[in-house]
Each structure stands twice: as C-alpha cells, then as structure tokens.
C-alpha cells in the first residue's frame, strides 16, 4: 500500500508501486480533462503511465470549473 496526500487529504493506493495512470483509473477520471501535479511539479499526461507514486507524495488533481 502506498500512502499519499491527494488534494490535501490522505489517500491509500491499493496497488503495489502504483503509477499515476492507476490512480486516475481508481478515481474514475480516465478520459477526463485533468492536470496532475506531484510534489509541486506538473506531471505531463505522457508521463502518467510511467510515474510511480511513493509514500508521502503530495498529488494535486485539478480540472477547469466555472469562474470569472
């Protein structure tokens, strides 16, 4: 199990050595227009399948919402 901070809250990844693409699938966000930051750095979409999450990683998942 890998324990991360996801959008400011604790989150346990079920898989061993989870990739960002696994996390996106777990969150039912595959195919959605989102962007991901890992420990303050953008992880480009092309790198989602190869980026392994580590214990304590701070992950932000954002989307576009209504705003001025």
């Amino acid at each position: 199990m890998t324990s991360i901070q996801l959008n400011g809250s604790p989150y346990l990844c079920r898989k061993l050595s989870p990739r960002i693409s696994d996390l996106i699938r777990d969150l039912s966000l595959d195919g959605k227009r989102i962007a991901i930051e890992r420990n303050g750095e953008i992880v480009p979409r092309s790198k989602h399948p190869e980026t392994v999450l580590l214990d304590g990683d701070k992950i932000e998942v954002v989307a576009a919402v209504g705003g001025g």
Binding site: L27, V62, A64, V65, G67
Partner: peptide
C-alpha cells in the same frame, strides 16, 4: 471565456 482551475472532487 474565462475558467477557474480547482481540485477535482475525489470520489
């Protein structure tokens, strides 16, 4: 058109 960027609602 402007849009805001916000955390997704997890789960």
């Amino acid at each position: 058109v402007t849009v805001a960027i916000r955390r997704t609602n997890i789960g």
